[in-house]
Nucleic acid binder design. Structure first.
Lengths: 98, 98
DNA sequence: AAATAGTACTTTGCAATGCAAGGTATTAGA
DNA sequence: TCTAATACCTTGCATTGCAAAGTACTATTT
């Protein structure tokens, strides 16, 4: 399945509360989107380097420490843009379908 | 901005009636999607080579002849698949937004 | 009829996205 | 101390979309 707008979906998830990669994959799975690690890590790194995300290391009771990501100020603004883009695409498809 | 699902939008347009590239660009413009020739021609060629589309040359009153594209049987089946994919993505985004 | 302008189709090269596959490092538990 | 599990990271590839430049045909103007 073609994902497109994966970035948007991931930011929607992170926007709710800080999460690490496994959390993200599980939430996507609940929404019936299958995404793998090899897709997420580079994407998260890119967003972090662009100042959209920040992270904090956090201990785990059952394994190595985890990177918990959250949105920066800039990230919330960027999410709002993606929201617009999504609505525009949705409107376009609606328009073309009738 | 990344469009994703551009292929879907284009097949929606061609499904209504045979069109050539300029028609497609205009209809997309009406739906507020800006797409250029350099994107469309390779996409249409690919779809034609995959048996999704066929075309017929048609004279023009005001210039060189045009390639009018239409969906094949296989193309209509493929469009139905894309329809599913789109609905799945829409459902996923809905799910993640609440 | 020759030159010009306009329309239509095509190709090439690049950047971004997503995936598969394989690799490294830390921790818990036997 | 060794093994299994968890977590993070990297490399190489296929696909998608765009910019830019190029080719070919038609109509119009001179």
């Amino acid at each position: 399945m073609r994902k497109g707008y994966l970035e948007y979906c991931i930011l929607l998830i992170i926007n709710r509360k800080p999460v690490y990669v496994s959390d993200i994959i599980n939430e996507l799975k609940e929404a019936r989107m299958i995404v793998v690690e090899g897709t997420l890590y580079p994407l998260l790194s890119r967003l972090k380097n662009n100042g959209i995300l920040s992270y904090q290391w956090q201990e785990s009771a059952s394994g190595p420490p985890r990177k918990y990501y959250e949105l920066t100020e800039k990230g919330r603004a960027f999410l709002a843009e993606l929201e617009n883009g999504w609505e525009e695409l949705r409107a376009a498809v609606e328009h073309l379908k009738r």
